Amino acid sequence: MPWPETYARHVLVEVDSTNAEAARRMDGLAGPAWICALSQTAARGRRGRAWNSPAGNFAATLVMRPTEPPETVALRSFVAALALYDALSDLTGTEAGLALKWPNDVLLNGGKVAGILLEGLPHGGLAVGIGVNLIAAPDRAMLEARAVAPVSVLSETGVRIQPEKMLDALAQAWAIREEAFVTYGFAAIREAWLARAARIGDTITARTSREETIGVFETVDATGQLVLNTPSGRVHIAAADVFF
């Protein structure tokens, strides 16, 4: 699989976190770069939560300097989700069981197989952190109540994928989706994401630090916000944890 020409590739044996390594390396990078670690000792998920990342699973961060306004830059979580979907379907040979969960997870047979973490870096940098359970899923006891159960690619498909092969597939898929995003804007990305979305039409719960909103998952709007149809009307939610 060809590596996209404009992206650097760094594979490390071990780091604390690929997002932290991206922040350390950003000033010395001439362009966008993928940083992949075969092992992480202090991986992080959303809201600073610990992310279990045993050897054999996939951990990588794309570091770049986007030029758009922050609200547009944030939409790259959808670009990343689509790229993950594309890469996993290519490597396993099927799209069966794959779905995208707002705001930043990939599901396989209903379980969480991958997560995405976007973090702003100094001087306009962006870190797109991605973790994929290739061979092992975290212990469910480590999860918060009602969280989607984790699964691995190996357990669900029987396909064993090496991290570096995942990196190559993901980088190529990202380059294609990123070019579409930059060229045509969010509309096409949104349409593709919605075509792969989990639980559209179902009643779900969106929880923030202050409140819970329960409603029918109607769509994602033109700014990437979750749209729920609730008894009190349509609600647009910019950021939340979603529970089925």
Rank of each mutant, 00 (worst) to 15 (best):
T205H: 03
A239Y: 05
Q225N: 11
V11T: 14
T183M: 06
I116V: 10
R140W: 07
L88D: 02
I135D: 09
T92P: 14
G215Q: 07
N133E: 09
L29M: 14
Q172K: 09
E218V: 10
V63A: 15
E191A: 15
E179S: 14
A137Y: 05
A43P: 06
R47T: 11
T6V: 07
R47P: 00
G131L: 12
L84M: 13
T213D: 01
P138Q: 10
T208R: 01
A74N: 08
A171P: 06
A137L: 12
A238G: 03
G48F: 09
G233H: 05
L126M: 15
L62S: 11
I176R: 13
K112Q: 08
R140Y: 00
V242G: 00
V113R: 04
F181P: 08
V13T: 13
C36Y: 01
V15Y: 10
R177N: 08
W193A: 02
G93E: 13
V63L: 03
F244E: 11
T223C: 07
G201D: 03
G158W: 04
G97S: 10
V151C: 15
G93V: 10
A99E: 06
V11W: 06
E178T: 02
R146D: 15
D139M: 03
A8V: 01
F217S: 05
A33M: 04
G110R: 06
R190E: 13
A96Q: 15
P54S: 09
L88P: 01
V73G: 00
R190I: 09
G111W: 00
Q162D: 13
S39T: 12
G158Q: 04
T208Y: 03
L91N: 06
L91Q: 11
Y184K: 10
D27A: 15
W51T: 05
A141V: 05
V220Y: 02
R46L: 07
P69H: 08
Q172D: 11
G110N: 10
A197G: 04
A59E: 04
H10K: 14
A141R: 14
A127P: 09
R196L: 02
N57G: 12
A136I: 00
S152F: 08
A180K: 09
I200Q: 15
V216P: 04
E5M: 01
V151Q: 00
S209H: 11
N19L: 08
G31R: 13
P4K: 05
S39V: 02
N109M: 11
V132Y: 06
D202C: 09
F78M: 05
A74W: 08
T41F: 05
G56C: 06
E212M: 08
